[in-house]
Amino acid sequence: MSAAGSGVVAWSGPEAGAPIGVPLVDLLDRVLGTGVVISGDLVIAIAEVPLIRLSLHALLASVSERVPAPWSDGGPL
């Protein structure tokens, strides 16, 4: 994984990577934290699930811990 080690690791698809290849933290980060939020009758209020709330807190550095953005070109997007 590291640059000092084997360099870039390309995860090459669900078959190759699903069981262990996808770092769980990156996966949760994505399936919980992104996407179009559709309001619906049975949409689980996911942030109210204790473990998920805990996970999100653990996953993401709090605002106070955040380091200055490493880009100087006004940032992405």
Binding site: A18, L24, L27, R30, V31, L32, G33, L42
Partner: peptide, 28 residues
């Protein structure tokens, strides 16, 4: 659950572009 969701979204993406929805988007 997260891996199932991801695996399924990824499988669908083999057939063309997809817009993934967040985990546990459920309807009656």
């Amino acid at each position: 659950c997260a891996r199932t969701h991801h695996r399924t979204v990824t499988a669908a993406a083999e057939h063309g572009p997809v817009v993934p929805l967040p985990l546990a988007t459920l309807f009656n």
